[in-house]
Nucleic acid binder design. Structure first.
Lengths: 205, 205, 205, 205
DNA sequence: AATGAATGAGCATTCATTCAT
DNA sequence: TATGAATGAATGCTCATTCAT
C-alpha cells in the first residue's frame, strides 16, 4: 500500500516534472523563434527528452501553447486575487493590478514575449484566449471600477467595461513597447505613469 | 506621341491593377486564415490569377504582407496629416487622431484584422513595422501632446512619449476587442470614450 | 519584285542572324552554367532578344542544345573532309585528324565545354549524338585505318573500329583534362603525344 | 554486455541497410532517368521507404550521387591496389588495371551508366570527382608507367601522366561505347585490344 | 513511460512554354 | 516577327505526428 502510493506519487511527480519541463522549454523556444518557426523537436531538445515523449503529455504543438497561456493566466489571476483581497480602496486596487501586470511580465521576459507576440499571432488563439483567461482578467478590473463608481470615487458617465479595456490596452502597450525596446528600461515604474493618466487625465485641472 | 503615352498609361494601369488585386486578395486571405496558414496559391486564386503571376509583382509571400502594411500605414499617416493640418487645438487634434484611427480600421475590417493580428504575430514583423510606420505614427501623437504641454493645456509632469503610448494602447485595445466581438457594435464612438478618460481621467474631480 | 526579294532576303538574313545569336548565346550559357541550370531566359538575354522570340526559332530548350551539337559536328566533319582530301598517307591523315580535333575544340573553349560536359549529361543526348555526327566521325577514322591496313602500313590483327575508338577516346580525354585544368597548357601539342603512342606503342622496340 | 552489443549490431545493421538501399536505388534511378530528371520520390519508392526517410540518411539529392561516386571509387581503388600488389612486371600491371576497369564496370551496368554519364553531366561533379578518386586512379597508372620507364621496358620520350590519360581515355571510351551499344558484346575482352595498341602501337614494326 | 526512426502530407518558388498584342 | 506578361505544372525538402520496440 505504502509502496503503491509511493510509486504512484513518484510517477505523478515525474509526469508533472516532464510536463513542466516541456512547458518551460516551450516558452523559451516560442519566445526565441516564434510559434510557427518553432519545431516540436526544438522543444523536446530544450526539455531534454525525445521528440515522441512530447506527445505523451500534449496532444499537439498547439496544445503546448494553449497550456502555456492557460497556466500563466491562471497563476496570474490567482496571484491577483490574493493580492487584491486585503485591499479596499478601488484606486489602490487598480494601482496594484497595474503594478502586478507589469511586474509579472517584466520578471519573465520570455513569457512576456509569448503573451504579447504569439498570443496575437492568430485570430484563433486570440479568440480562445479571450474566451479563457482574458475575459476573467478584464472582469476583475471592471468590477473594481464598478466598486469605485458605487463609492462615488470614480465618475459614473463611463461604462466600467470600456474603462477596463482602456486600462488594459494602455498596460499592454507598455509591455509590447518594452519588449521591442530590448529591455532598455525597467517596466514596472510605467504602472504609475499609466495610472496617473488613467485616473487623473491629461488635462490640467 | 499621344498614342505612345496612351499605351504606356494602359500598360501601367494593368500592372497596377494586378498588384492591387494581389494586395487586396492578400488582405482577405491573411485576415481569414492568418499569414502562416495562408498559401500563396490561396492569394492567387482569390486574385484571379495564376500562382506564378504573384511572383511577377512580389518577391515572396513575406513581401506581400510588408506591402500591405507599408501602403496602409502610408495612406493612414498621409490622411492623418491632411486632417490634422487645419486644426490648432491639441485636444481637438488628439480627438481627431482617435476618431480617424477607429474609423479607418472599422471601415476595413479585414485590413484591421491583418493589422491587429498578423502584424503582431512575429517579433520580426513587429520590429520591422515598428521601425517603419508605427514609430512615425506614435511621433505624431507625441508632438501633439508636446504642443499641448507648451500651451499649458496639458499637464507637464508626464513624458509625452509615454502618454502617446497610453493613448495608442487604449485605441489599439478598442480595435482588438471590436474585432474579437465580431462587430457587434460600432467602433468609432469608442474614440470619445477613450478621450474622456485620457483627457479627464477616471477620478471624480 | 526587287522590293519583295529584298524583304525576303532581309527577312531570311534576320532569321539566320537571330538563330545564330541564339545558338551562340546557348553555347555561352550552357558552358557557364550547365544545361539543366541554364534558363531559356538567360539565353534570350545573352542573345539580346525577348524570351518568347527563342520559340520562333527553336521548339524547345532541348532543341537548342541539339542544334549546337549538330551544327558543330557538321562543321567539324566538313572541315575534316576538306583537310583530309588532299592527303594520301593514312598516318598523316590520322595525325591531321588528331590535330584538327584538338585545335578545333581548344579554339572555342565554350563549345568544348558543351561537347565534353553537356553532351554527356544524359544518356538520351549521348544516344542521339551517337546516332548523329559521332558515328560519322568515328567512321572517318575507321576508314583511314582500313586504308592503312590495306596498304600494309598498319597491323592487321586489330579491328579498325576498335582502333578508331581508342584514338577517339584518347583525344577526348585530352580535351576533358584540358578543360578541367582551366587551360593551363596549350591543347593542340597533345595531338603529337597521342599519336606517338597510338602509332608506336609504349613498349621499347 | 553480449546482449547490448547484439542490439547495437542489429541497429547498426538496419541503419546500414537503409543507407545501402537508398544508394542502390539511387544508382538504378539515376541510371534510368538521369540525375536531373530523377525525383527524390523515385529513389524513395525504389528503395521501399518514405520520401522523408531519405533525408535521415542523406542531406540532399546531391549527396546521394556523391556517396555513390565516393563509395564506388573507394571500392574500385582498393580492389585495384589489392590485385596489383603481388604483380611486379609493369606491363602485366597495366594489363591488370585495364581488365579490372572493364570487368568492374561491365559487372554493374547501372553503376557504369552513372559513372559514364552522370559524372560528366556537370563541370561541378566532374571537378569534385576529379579532385576525389579520379586523380588517385590516374596516379596509380602514372606510377606504373614510371616503373616501366625506370626498368627500361617503356620508352622514356613520353610523359607518364600523358600516357596514363591516353590509356584511361581509351578504356573510358570502350565503356561508353559499350553502354550505348546496349551490351551487345562483352566488355572485358576489349582490355586486351586496348593494351595491344597502347603497348605496341598501330604501326607495323 | 520513453524512445527516435519512419512517415507522408504540405508548400513556396521556379521556369519552360504560350499567346494576346 | 517580336514581345514579355501570364501561366501552372513540377519538386526538393521540412516537420508534426505516429508507433514498434
Amino acid at each position: 500500500m505504502a509502496r503503491g502510493s509511493k510509486e504512484g506519487g513518484a510517477t505523478k511527480a515525474v509526469v508533472t516534472d516532464k510536463r513542466e519541463a516541456i512547458l518551460r522549454a516551450g516558452v523559451r523556444v516560442f519566445a526565441a523563434k516564434g510559434f510557427f518557426n518553432s519545431k516540436v523537436a526544438d522543444i523536446a531538445r530544450e526539455a531534454g527528452i525525445a521528440d515522441g515523449t512530447v506527445y505523451l503529455y500534449f496532444k499537439s504543438k498547439d496544445e503546448i501553447l494553449h497550456s502555456i497561456f492557460n497556466r500563466a493566466m491562471a497563476d496570474f489571476i490567482e496571484e491577483g486575487r490574493r493580492e487584491l483581497e486585503p485591499i479596499d480602496d478601488p484606486t489602490e486596487k487598480l494601482m496594484t493590478i497595474a503594478e502586478l501586470h507589469l511586474e509579472r511580465l517584466s520578471a519573465d521576459r520570455e513569457l512576456a514575449i509569448v503573451f504579447q507576440v504569439e498570443l496575437r499571432g492568430s485570430t484563433k488563439f486570440m479568440q480562445e484566449f479571450s474566451a479563457a483567461g482574458f475575459a476573467e482578467y478584464l472582469d476583475i478590473i471592471k468590477r473594481t471600477i464598478e466598486e469605485g463608481q458605487e463609492s462615488g470615487m470614480f465618475r459614473k458617465d463611463m461604462k466600467p467595461v470600456v474603462c477596463a479595456k482602456i486600462l488594459y490596452g494602455a498596460l499592454d502597450e507598455m509591455v509590447t513597447n518594452w519588449i521591442l525596446s530590448a529591455n532598455k528600461y525597467p517596466l514596472p515604474p510605467m504602472a504609475g505613469e499609466v495610472m496617473k493618466i488613467f485616473l487623473g487625465g491629461l488635462l490640467v485641472k
